[in-house]
Structure formats: C-alpha cells, structure tokens
Amino acid sequence: MPPETPALPGIRVGADLVEVARVERLMADNPGLADQVFTGRERAYCASRPRRRGEHLAARFAAKEAVLKALGTGAAGADWTEIEVVNQANGRPVLRLHGRAAALADRRQVRQTDISLSHGAGLATAYAVLVCAGPDKDQHDPQHQQDTTGRATT
C-alpha cells in the first residue's frame, strides 16, 4: 500500500485594492475615521512617513479588507482595528489579529499569516494569506480534484 499522503494545509487568500485619494479624502472629511479604522501603532507608522502617509494608510486599509476576505467574513465581521499591520524592524509588515478577528482566525484554525502591501499610481493593494491546520473545504488540490462523476476536473 502506498504511504498515506499527508493532508494539505488549507490556504485562504484575500486581496483588496483601494484608491489612495479616496482614503485621504475620507480621513480629511472625517476626523473620527482614523481612530475607527487604524490602531495607534498604524497611525504612528504612517505619520512617520509624511510624504507617503496616505499611501501607507490606504495600503493598511486594503490589508484589513484582504484579511476579512480571507477569513470569509464581511466588513461587519470584525472591527477594523482588530486587524493590525505592524512593521518589523526591517520594515516587513506582519499581521496582528485581536478580538473577534483573532477568534475568527482560531475558528478557521489559522496557524500562520502573511501579508503583502504595495502602492503606487494612486492605488494601494494588499494580499493576505492565511495557512490553516485543516484543509479548507472550499479549496482542493487540483491534482486530486474530481467532479461528482469521478472525472478529473483539471
């Protein structure tokens, strides 16, 4: 008998793209918005880069959206401040989940996260990857995926 293939981890991906000018306008028009969306650490990081503050904020907004998508919940699934992007000493952004976002991640058996941010040309984008202990039921290894007739669907 061939050795049993170890179960593949579930991988959940989320992506988002926002217009930098829109985030900047929202922030300018609504002084209370920054506190509702960004943590103190995020605001401080972006404020320390005044030339591109709006781009950094927009990228973090996109990151929060990307994580919500990867978790499979709508915008109302967690507070924006419960999803935090923290920059390591080398500048690499990492995710910190708190409150309901952390509870959702636990429920999805998330064991590892990664985030990638980019901005330019007036847009900011983010990709979130969540690696889960168990396989994601919506995701299949294409080498083994079959439809209900037993035919390979690759």
Binding site: V18, R22, V23, N30, Q36, E65, G74, A75
Partner: peptide, 9 residues
C-alpha cells in the same frame, strides 16, 4: 466596505 464607511460618516 469603504463606501459603507463613507456613507455612515
């Protein structure tokens, strides 16, 4: 979602 935020503010 960014529109929701905009609408509510």
């Amino acid at each position: 979602s960014i529109d929701l935020l905009d609408i509510l503010f």
